[in-house]
């Protein structure tokens, strides 16, 4: 092999970058070619909430009671204050406190 280890690793990183960008662009590229029918429209309309709730689920529901309660506290704070940084701070504060109390 005539390639230096550095150029191999940099080319690998470029390959990883292309793989990532492909995933980011593919959704829009597909939707330019597809005109969704009613069923696909309902699918697509449910996707944002489903992604958010899936991101949350393991951290909220499978990481112990402290994290589960803190998620509830965060949800209430978000509902009451409608302020993202504040809800985030309340959530992190709650989890710190609850983990100390409950472990």
């Amino acid at each position: 092999m005539s390639m230096s280890p550095l150029s191999i690793s940099l080319l690998t990183i470029v390959g990883m970058a292309l793989a990532t960008y492909t995933s980011r662009a593919a959704g829009l590229a597909l939707m330019t070619r597809v005109t969704p029918g009613p069923r696909l429209r309902r699918f697509m309309r449910a996707i944002p909430g489903a992604i958010l709730v899936s991101i949350i689920a393991p951290g909220a529901l499978a990481s112990g009671p402290a994290d589960a309660i803190a998620t509830g506290v965060t949800a209430v704070a978000a509902w009451r204050f409608r302020n993202l940084p504040l809800a985030m701070a309340v959530g992190v504060g709650a989890v710190l406190l609850l983990r100390q109390v409950m472990s």
């Binding site: 958010l52 803190a70 998620t71 965060t74 959530g91 992190v92």
Partner: peptide, 8 residues
């Protein structure tokens, strides 16, 4: 978890 909960 907190951020995504608040966004949801």
């Amino acid at each position: 978890t907190a951020v995504f909960t608040a966004l949801l």
